[in-house]
Amino acid sequence: MSRKQTLREPGLQTLGAEERGGSEADRRSVAPAVSGQISDMSPPEVGGLLRPLRRFWSVTAIVLLLSLAGASYSVSALSDTYTGRASLIVSSNNRSPDQDAVLVQGYVDYFNDIAYQQQLARSVGLDGVVTLTARAAAASPILLVEATTDSRDKAQSAAAAVAGAFQTDLNRVRDQQQRRQVRKLEDRLEQVGRAGGPDAATSVAALQDQIAEVEADRTNRLQELQFEGGVSMNSPNPLTNVAFAGLGGLILGVLAAIALDRIFRPGPQPRG
């Protein structure tokens, strides 16, 4: 048994050496291929990326200068504007404020319709450029009417006038309904007074209470909160406008340089 083992051991050692040698040879042959792949996967040279800018730097500069010039001109033409505010409120008798706030949001959407705003502006005689808008004050039943123009006094007067016209317009239907109800109750009150009788005084008092209740009903009605809510000044920010214009012009100039580089890229040279 010992001789067989001694005879096998050299063969095993030789086989192990061959395997080790083969693996080492394989590693040597694979290493150049892997290094070649790594070199192929390396990022492009910075010079290749900057080539379009070097070739067409004048195009990038022209686009940038045009953007800056346009922004500077537009900023110089801007002037301060003023925003006047007026406030209305919906405060129903037997309804919570959060329910009235939902109604106010509907009034805001109705006011901000362009065609309706033009109708309101004509009804109050607004002239010149006046921007009108309405918004709800947070989640409250307060409606803010804003008018923006180039004059402080005109902004406040326009906001108050438009808010009053809007209040009158929306309350018109409700006012008509209340007048009809009051008229009916007054007719009944007159009939009871003419008829007389032992229960006439009780009926008259009940009808008078109903008339007072109808007249005091403010459900769904817009009410004046503050028609002169103040004026704020809006000043343009020239540095921000020019900075954004410069950034946009730089990006457009770089894209233009890349596009021109691809269009006018020289073809492959013929081999000698």
Rank of each mutant, 00 (worst) to 15 (best):
L66N: 04
S157T: 07
A147E: 00
N112D: 10
A33P: 07
E146I: 00
T240K: 13
A200T: 08
L12M: 06
T168P: 12
A147T: 03
Q119E: 14
A155K: 00
L132R: 10
N234W: 10
F264I: 11
I211E: 01
L120P: 03
T149P: 08
T81W: 05
D26F: 15
A121S: 10
V192S: 09
V242F: 09
A86S: 13
S23P: 08
P236D: 02
R180A: 14
N237E: 12
Q117I: 06
R3D: 03
V162W: 04
Q13T: 00
I62D: 00
R221V: 09
A61R: 00
A212L: 10
L132D: 13
A200F: 09
E45G: 05
L252D: 01
D169Y: 15
S203P: 08
L120H: 05
Q210M: 08
E24V: 11
A206G: 10
D209C: 09
M233L: 12
S23N: 14
N112Q: 09
A160Q: 02
G267D: 10
L170D: 06
V231E: 06
Q37S: 04
D100A: 07
A205K: 14
G21P: 02
M41I: 00
R194P: 07
Q176M: 13
D109P: 09
R20Q: 09
A139D: 15
G249W: 02
R152T: 04
R218Y: 06
S123I: 01
Q226K: 13
P236H: 04
R8P: 03
E186C: 11
G22K: 13
P236L: 00
R135Y: 15
S2P: 04
G230S: 04
V104H: 00
R51I: 10
